[in-house]
Design a protein around this nucleic acid. Structure first.
Lengths: 220, 220
DNA sequence: AGCATAAATAATAA
DNA sequence: TTATTATTTATGCT
């Protein structure tokens, strides 16, 4: 199976979120002493903080339920290793109109009206459950479901221009351990500091080492 | 009590992390087909991917156990709403020498030697358990334990005037990487917070990079 | 309704 | 490790 998920029966430390887990980011700041303007478009995050009003009067919406879901949604999303952007894009692809990163963000923060939240909740719930289902079958399946690149590598930090990197890489391919003389020449050609080029090769070798984690013979 | 933790008995959707949760970020890219140079200082992330070697031969270290812990550590940390920086700072305060954000990052990514990981694991385990304990008693207690501000609010988003942006851009054109001294002067001239100006340059460099990246065909 | 981008967080070159 | 870049999240705005 997935090399990232070996055959050990269960996690050694089963992660069970505490009965009353904290909000991931204390975004719904409880210390906010601003008066709740329960006017035309009060947000869930505001309403739910009112102790006795857990059900939106007009709509018959269980705000408490939504709040719990929003909280759990974030944790489950993170457990799957997904970003708000990924969720938004995937939803846009599968569910129809458009779900921007902003929309996911605002849902998680409950910075939306109860009506919007109520509408969005089942969509997210269904999608997340499906995503978790695919994840069971391996990370690759999840990423396929999400629609992102299966293994989009994080771009390496660099202060070099793309052109320079291309040249450096071509040199590196030929010889990953250039001599001092060669380094000097490359630096001159690219018009970079010699020391910078030397360090680039060091880090490049380092990266190679660190990224060559997977045994090529190990078919998942 | 805490307005964030109302009296509802339990979470409606108890978040139980799946038996085999995925790594949060797919950092250990499985597609890498580079040969493993099992040299002097193989990292846990490297070693653990070798199917039959779950125990480091020399050290008697259970790599699989460490990997599971690292994975769960991240999820549990996020569930508590803590950042790597917070963990590092708190550990530095309570446990002694120094645990930087980078150190936590590297542990979670297992970009460290088994020996280091083995040494760090119990420290993190103990600390995290304690943090979870305090969290049970309310978010405030957790934040107190962590030592950070109870509810550090996100800075309000700054709106630059068009004039200010014009000036900033002209500076950026001349030098996209101003020194601390220069930043201070620019901030003073424009009457903006120094930090705000610094971040503006960071983001501006980012934007430039992202837009100039479009025409790169590095399709392998 | 969502884009553009400021701010915050994580990863990594030095 | 430490500074800085890369990435993600959050929000001002229209």
């Amino acid at each position: 199976s997935n090399p990232l998920s070996p055959a050990t029966a269960a996690t050694q430390l089963p992660v069970v979120i505490a009965p009353q887990p904290s909000v991931l980011k204390s975004t719904t700041s409880p210390s906010s002493s601003l008066p709740i303007t329960c006017g035309d478009a009060a947000k869930v995050g505001q309403l739910v903080s009112k102790p006795h009003q857990t059900v939106s009067s007009e709509e018959g919406i269980n705000l408490e339920e939504i709040r719990e879901f929003a909280k759990n949604f974030k944790i489950r999303r993170l457990s799957l290793g997904l970003t708000q952007t990924q969720v938004g894009q995937a939803l846009t692809a599968t569910e129809g109109p458009a779900y921007s990163q902003s929309a996911i963000c605002r849902f998680e923060k409950l910075d939306i009206t109860p009506k919007s939240a109520q509408k969005l909740k089942p969509v997210l719930e269904k999608w997340l459950a499906e995503a978790e289902h695919w994840n069971q079958k391996g990370q690759q399946n999840l990423m396929e479901f999400v629609g992102g690149e299966p293994s989009k590598k994080r771009k390496r930090r660099t202060s070099f221009t793309p052109q320079a990197i291309e040249v450096l890489n071509s040199y590196f391919e030929k010889n990953s351990l250039p001599t001092g003389q060669e380094i000097t020449e490359i630096a001159k050609e690219l018009n970079y500091d010699r020391e910078v080029v030397r360090v680039w090769f060091c880090n490049r070798r380092q990266t190679l080492k660190n990224t060559s984690k997977i045994n090529i013979f190990q078919i998942q």
